[in-house]
């Protein structure tokens, strides 16, 4: 543990160091395991995984059918498995329904496909209001849903993890899967944005 700091540690920094150092000294935690997990979720797992799933579903109708029928298995086909994605359900945006995901009780989020959640997804502000006033919240993200389109909010109260399959943007016919994946954003897979053509 380095003591070479140019400012005093905050209380929370001290508590974290105290906890980790005690657990390591007691042989209960291996600091190298902590390092490896940080590296995995900071650099290897993230929304580019989910974007690959979405692009594959847009390209391959049979894959899309498997994805909507058994999200866990279809996502595992692309190698994305694990913690906070053990039981995945993918919900499809259609001509008449727009889906959006929340966890009102904590901050459940599909880590294998989207990575760790952004602060706003974990905020009491988003969690409290998106079930009550989804159209207002989406509007704050710059997304206006016409009144005749259904907004369906999925509150992840169980260990099922949800992800949105957004609409494929017009004008992308004939594109390769990698080109399509590059268009897909984290926010579109949460449901607070649409995927747009780069010329839009």
């Amino acid at each position: 543990m380095s003591t070479n700091h140019n400012r005093p540690l905050s209380d929370v920094e001290i508590r974290v160091k105290a906890l980790e150092s005690l657990l390591v000294e007691k042989g209960l935690v291996d600091a190298a395991a902590v390092d490896a997990l940080i590296d995995t979720y900071e650099h290897k797992v993230g929304p580019r995984n989910g974007a690959q799933v979405v692009a594959r579903a847009w390209q391959d109708p049979a894959y899309k059918a498997r994805l909507l029928a058994d999200g866990t298995a279809a996502i595992a086909e692309l190698g994305f498995t694990g913690m906070q994605g053990e039981d995945m359900v993918v919900v499809e945006n259609t001509l008449d329904t727009h889906n959006v995901i929340v966890c009102t009780l904590c901050s459940c989020y599909p880590w294998p496909t989207l990575g760790l959640p952004p602060v706003w997804f974990k905020s009491a502000a988003y969690r409290s209001r998106v079930v009550l006033d989804p159209r207002g919240v989406l509007s704050e993200f710059g997304l206006e849903i016409p009144a005749e389109i259904r907004v369906q909010v999925w509150d992840s109260t169980s260990e099922i993890r949800y992800m949105v399959l957004p609409e494929r943007p017009a004008g992308t016919e004939g594109w390769h899967e990698a080109q399509l994946a590059a268009l897909v954003t984290r926010d579109a897979m949460i449901g607070v944005a649409k995927v747009t053509h780069p010329n839009e």
Binding site: V24, A32, D35, A36, L37, T40, G82, M83, P112
Partner: peptide, 20 residues
């Protein structure tokens, strides 16, 4: 016994479903 880095990464990518 503490899990080591290989075990930790494997456990993370395996997960632990609560399905019974």
């Amino acid at each position: 016994m503490a899990i080591n880095r290989e075990q930790a990464v494997a456990a993370a990518s395996r997960g632990a479903s609560t399905r019974v």
